[in-house]
Design a protein around this nucleic acid. Structure first.
Lengths: 340, 340
DNA sequence: TGACAATTTTGGAACGATCTAATTGAGTGC
DNA sequence: GCACTCAATTAGATCGTTCCAAAATTGTCA
């Protein structure tokens, strides 16, 4: 079932059918109707591969995401999808499972399929060397969420430092002086940025950083629960609040607090990061730094299309602003309330 | 940069290069080495589209998922991905956003790209008519999670009825008599199946179903919280336990109970459905019916490959078993504990 | 009516791979 | 030395589309 069959059925040449398929204004209305009918009747399926072979420009955008089971990244992908769709492209979405080797294979496979551009949310441990061949190939590429230092591709990152700093300011403003940073893998760029913002916030308030209060863990609910143990196990001056690496950790911290008969938002303040959907409906509703992954995905896709349309553009790096959302999980420290 | 360039560089014909590319045993070791080197040196990228044009069989599996931001479906997709990858295929994963029209476009687009098979987790409201052209085209198709009645394609569904019945048995075994069913959209197949299992379970125990205790809502955390209000608002005999449509609803029910100063797992028993990752680490850990979406995704992909390899197979429907996981959110009703 | 322009249509050469059948060259047995 | 087999290589057709240049058709006007 090809254009030739359609042509035969409609009594025209294959060239005319092709023109109808790309809705060219050259073809007479009556002819178009006849051809369209034949296409419908015969149940013809357009062969995009063949078209692409001749045209050399495809309508496929490759998207490689480190972990789709993490709802932050799933929302990111959905945001991209919106823009990709509305631009008349389709996407090749793949899950790298935080595996650099797997990610490399996926990117290769996508290039073999002739994608028009690629958005990459890199797996942990991705180095500039991994992206070198990509950058050299001239394929438009946008890296999101996690920065890959030393590579000449565009990137779209959230302003983690400012977000963490704002969160600390909020806690300090409530009267907290002993503030922990909980969760996240210390060897990641995002962790480094958020902790840097945390340090800035404390420095601003003239509070010395206690390294014992910076507690790494898996960036998950279980990791957060584990971090609480380490945080409160110390014999010394326990913290009264924690800025968490992300919302999952924050929920874990709440779980851990409850297990110790401490009520989050009353006995201990908790701030998350990301503002995932559950943050609003959880009890207590989570104070968190809203990153809006869906919005970020949209902007990343827009940046990619800008590059695709501009031909060969200079790589640019964008920091998207974040916003502190204050809800019920933060309050003045218990002691100061007793005093007042 | 094509096979011809490689051929020229290596001093062979394009046919030989092609043979090397498909690692044919026909080509001499020395020649293969020379060609492989040229491929590496020139940074050649294989054009899978062109190959597919000639070969007529692609290595792409299309996967259309109703909602990727729902972690149940994200995990399902990741499970499929594992099998697809290890079979040497790549996947075209798309998010339909619960929009039937959008889903239709996605499926068409995938067919135009020449997929070898399709796995569909249908958007709400998908009818047999939507799938008719697909089924007729002879493309191997597997429908997962949500059944589409009256269509001749293979499907893989979880045994919702048995799961709900087991959950009710468990609650009855603990001594509960007033058991609610909370959450979910009543117009969906999955809701119908789970409620049917719930009714069976009650019937088995000789308990009459009180229709006022079957409470629909959005299948989300917020929906669960809302359902609690309706459940406990009645003047009459309040329930002592609830079987929830899914885990998100169950978490919402826990939130709603706390807001009323009732402790889930102590004052009121809650059973979820799906066993999402957070169910294990939440406080209290959730008793739930484990569906194991990742496993289900794997089985769906296996079923699809079975069809692809068998050529034209008879459509088959598989119900995957589910398993009740008892954790801390269920206990004997408060009253019976007082008596003992 | 015929020349010319404008509108539609069309044949055939691409695109980059694979496949088939044919060719080359070396080795073997008589 | 010849016919034969076997291994390795290759030319050329082919897949389904788009593009180009040219051809066919239609309309306009002196």
């Amino acid at each position: 079932m090809t254009v030739i069959d359609i042509a035969r059925a409609a009594g025209v040449s294959k060239s005319t059918v092709s023109l109808v398929l790309q809705s060219s204004p050259l073809v007479k209305e009556e002819t178009r109707a006849r051809v369209s009918e034949a296409i419908r009747d015969l149940g013809y399926v357009y062969n995009r591969g063949a078209a692409h072979l001749r045209q050399a420009k495809s309508k496929i955008i490759g998207i490689v995401v480190n972990d789709l089971t993490n709802s932050f990244f799933a929302e990111l992908a959905v945001g991209m999808d919106m823009i990709v769709q509305s631009a008349g492209y389709v996407q090749f979405l793949a899950h790298a499972g935080e595996d650099v080797e797997r990610q490399r294979e996926l990117i290769n496979s996508m290039r073999e399929h002739g994608i028009a551009g690629l958005i990459l949310s890199p797996a942990r441990g991705t180095s500039a060397a991994d992206l070198k061949p990509l950058a050299d190939s001239g394929l438009p590429v946008v890296v999101v969420v996690r920065n890959v230092a030393g590579t000449r591709v565009s990137s779209l990152l959230s302003d983690n430092g400012a977000g963490a700093r704002d969160a600390v300011r909020h806690l300090v403003g409530l009267g907290h002086r002993r503030i922990a940073f909980a969760g996240g893998f210390p060897d990641t760029q995002v962790f480094a940025e958020r902790v840097a913002g945390y340090r800035d916030g404390l420095a601003e308030a003239g509070i010395a950083v206690d390294e014992a209060l910076v507690i790494g863990s898996a960036p998950s609910r279980a990791g957060g629960a584990a971090a609480v143990e380490r945080m409160l196990a110390g014999d010394g001056d326990a913290p009264t609040a924690a800025l968490c690496f992300n919302d999952a950790v924050a929920f874990g911290v709440c779980d851990g607090l409850r297990a110790r008969r401490l009520e989050p938002g009353v006995d201990f303040s908790v701030v998350g990061f990301d503002d995932v959907i559950e943050a609003r409906t959880a009890v207590p509703a989570l104070t968190t730094v809203a990153v809006d992954p869906q919005r970020m995905g949209q902007r990343a896709a827009q940046l990619l299309f800008k590059q695709i349309n501009a031909g060969t553009a200079e790589p640019e790096t964008i920091r998207t602003p974040v916003r502190l959302v204050v809800r019920q999980s933060t309050a003045a420290p218990a002691r100061s309330r007793e005093l007042s």
